[in-house]
Design a protein around this nucleic acid. Sequence first.
DNA 1: CACTTCTTGAACTGATCAGTCCAAGATGGG
DNA 2: CCCATCTTGGACTGATCAGTTCAAGAAGTG
Lengths: 196, 196
Amino acid sequence: MAGKKQFDMDTVLDAAMIQFWRSGYADTSLDDLSRATGLNRSSIYSSLGDKDALFLRCLDRYATRYGDKFDAALSCAAEDPVAAVRAFFDVTLRRIADPAVPDGCLMAQSVMASPALSPSVAEHVKELFGLQRPRLRTALKAGGMSDENAEDFAVHIAAVNQSLAVMGRAGSSPEQLRAIVGVTVDALARALRPVG
Amino acid sequence: MAGKKQFDMDTVLDAAMIQFWRSGYADTSLDDLSRATGLNRSSIYSSLGDKDALFLRCLDRYATRYGDKFDAALSCAAEDPVAAVRAFFDVTLRRIADPAVPDGCLMAQSVMASPALSPSVAEHVKELFGLQRPRLRTALKAGGMSDENAEDFAVHIAAVNQSLAVMGRAGSSPEQLRAIVGVTVDALARALRPVG
DNA sequence: CACTTCTTGAACTGATCAGTCCAAGATGGG
DNA sequence: CCCATCTTGGACTGATCAGTTCAAGAAGTG
């Protein structure tokens, strides 16, 4: 077998991402990754680099995949910001309900574990994690919200969205998760209605 | 040295708890615990049991210490539920601002890491984590809220409270954390005011 | 069909892990 | 002052970790 990779890179990266997502960085060994991807250790190293490099690629993959979905959900914010935020939360709620994918959130658990990561990886995690807030702020301002309110709601919504993964992993039911976002969506609707 | 322990159990348990809190279960080795507590490995085993047993004691210690503070904060819920919830959040905000203690939250990060914990420990973590919601529900009902609203706000407030630790560890400023709880407290105040 | 090129599997290295064991030594009772 | 008792420190075990190395062998090229 020369000159041709024996595997599909997308499939392999998905498998590795899901492994990190399910077990976290510290509890994912190279043997786990080898088993999950079907690749030998030396194939992983030669094609994807060391554990940190592979983890970074998985983080970027995760951030891009769901970042695009969040952007799409918020794209109607100018016309109907409340519907946009509802769609934003739905991305997460659907991800949690999807049996093809682990519960929890790769970003949130990586942030929580960041003191144990190498400094450069930890920095990258925080950067990716921080993309959520400006995304929301821009959408809320497009929806007609004042600067100050948009700031506050953006960070609040980012926090609530992140909490869904933790609550889901802790055993909260889909109904409870909907109740969590319901309070936030109601508050947003009220804040956007000029006469309250 | 016979018949007398050479150390203060409270001091040792605090040191171990903080070590787990800072680094998480997976990234805390017995050498770390030995260094943090000043106790030798064999002293840890003979006095506190194995790593899982010690971790459980630290979890219980954490849950009791902050659980008591949360209860105290909510004790005025019948007279002023909004002030009670504000005080509830203040327990967490003050903990995050306290330099004597790690950022993050031992419960939240243990829940996130639960798939990598032994099943019995994971179960215990989820139990302790689940204590927050009924605590809040009882307080909100005492404050005059309807059953349905109390349910929804209880799980929402528990989620937001939990998210503060993650957002703090991700680098959010104290002002941003206050904005996160501000939205929730405002929503609660509105829900409690009979005429909105 | 032969040769070059690259992937691949398995063995190996040194470090670190949780957990065990035991001799050394300190203390309190007699 | 001596002995029994218990804590303590350090050495040890077997497992697992990330990362490296290398021979075997398959595909492409002529």
